[in-house]
């Protein structure tokens, strides 16, 4: 298999991987908590793409029985990802709820500012303790 063929044969995977990496980058590099959650979402959705790509069969059709024998794409990844999407939303919901509470408690949702406040608190504790 030549290089070009190879890339062609795997392009979908590679695309989802690049998206995945971007999502991960947002999570670890951004200080804004909401943006982190957005990144996490991106990360997860690209994992879904990877799965769905795995399930694709060239020339196949959506796995719905029409009566005549056909080539189907693999339905199992679809099933898994349906579940995973819901899990992803659930995580997002909890994460956002936490952010709202953090905003109430700290007044900001920037990681570094929160860190500064917590440090100050810790020093206070250390002095009194």
């Amino acid at each position: 298999m030549t290089g070009i063929d190879f890339i062609l044969a795997h392009y979908n995977y590679s695309a989802s991987i690049i998206l995945m990496a971007l999502g991960f980058y947002i999570v670890i590099s951004r200080g804004n908590l909401i943006k982190k959650i957005v990144g996490l979402n991106l990360f997860q959705v690209s994992v879904f793409m990877l799965y769905i790509s795995m399930g694709k069969v060239s020339g196949g059709t959506a796995p719905i029985l029409t009566g005549k024998p056909e080539l189907f794409s693999n339905p199992l990844p679809h099933v898994l990802i349906l579940t995973a999407i819901v899990v992803g939303v659930a995580t997002t919901a909890i994460g956002l709820a936490l952010i709202v509470r953090i905003k109430d408690a700290y007044g900001v949702i920037e990681e570094d500012e929160i860190l500064v406040m917590d440090r100050a608190r810790e020093q206070l504790d250390a002095r009194s303790g």
């Binding site: 769905i52 399930g55 796995p63 679809h78």
Partner: peptide
């Protein structure tokens, strides 16, 4: 959709 995963 293009990957045949309509439900997803």
């Amino acid at each position: 959709v293009t990957l045949d995963a309509v439900d997803v």
